[in-house]
Amino acid sequence: MLVVKKLEVCVNGKKIVEDVNLSVRAGELHVIIGPNGSGKSTLLSAIMGLPRVNVCNGSIVFEGSDITNTPSYERAKMGIALAYQNPPSIRGVKFSEIAKNLIKRCGCSDYTIMSKVLRTDEFLGRDLFVGFSGGERKRAELYLVLLQNPKIALLDEPDSGVDIESLNLIADAINLLIKRGSSVVLVTHSGSILSKLRRVDRTHIMLDGRIAYSGLVDEVLPLISKYGFRKSAEILGKILSGE
C-alpha cells in the first residue's frame, strides 16, 4: 500500500531524514519509536506532503502511484490522513464545521460512534483547537482523521501529554481504525499506548533521521525500557547480523 524508498527529507536546507525505507501493507499497524528530534514527525510530514518539508531524494509510492510530488490535499483525497502532534488553533473556525465538511466529503457514516468513542461532544461547538487541553486536542485531531475514512492513517504522537483517561480513549479509536481496515503508522516516543493496542505488526526504531532497526514490538519495547533507544538498536542490530 505505502512504499517509501531511500527517502531523504530536508527542513530549511538541513537533512532531517536520511535513507529511510518503509513498506506498509493494507491493514498493518506500524510503530515508529525514537527519541525527540530523531526525524519521526518529519517522516510523517513528508509522507503527507506538507510544504514545510522538502523531499530531496527518494520516493513515496501509494497504491502503486508515485506521490512524491503530489500536493497534500490530493494525498488526503487518495486516502492518506495525518493526525498532527500539535494541530494549530484557528480562531473563528468551528471544530464542528470542519468535522461536518469531512463527513460530507469522505462519506463517513459512523461518525456518531467515533464521536462517542472520543467524546467529541465536549468540544464540537468550540473554535478549532482554541483553548483545548492536551487530551482534547489529541482526541479532536484523531476524530478528524477517523472522519476521513483513511486507507492509511499517520498518527504523530497521539499519546504524548495526555492523561490516562484520554490515553484509553485514543487507544480505543486507533483499535477502531484497525478494525475498519485502515493501515496505521503510529509515531511515539514513549510507547505508553502500545500495550493498549489490539496488535502491532512492525516496530521501527528511528535514530538520527534513519530507521536503525525494524522488528517486533515484543522484542523492541523491553530492550528500550532497559537500555534506551540507541543501545537497544545496537543490540538488536547485532543480534540480527549474528554478531
Binding site: 503527507m48 506532503g49 506538507l50 510544504p51 514545510r52 500536493p71 497534500s72 490535499y73 488526503a76 483525497k77 490522513a81 495525518l82 498532527y84 494541530p87 494549530p88 484557528i90 470542519i98 465538511n101 469531512l102 466529503r105 469522505c106 478528524l144 476521513q148
Partner: peptide, 16 residues
C-alpha cells in the same frame, strides 16, 4: 494568514 493554518487544512483535503 498563517501558513501553518493553511498547511493544516490542506492536509485535511482542502485545496489552498
Amino acid at each position: 494568514i498563517a501558513q501553518e493554518e493553511l498547511e493544516y487544512l490542506m492536509s485535511k483535503g482542502f485545496k489552498e
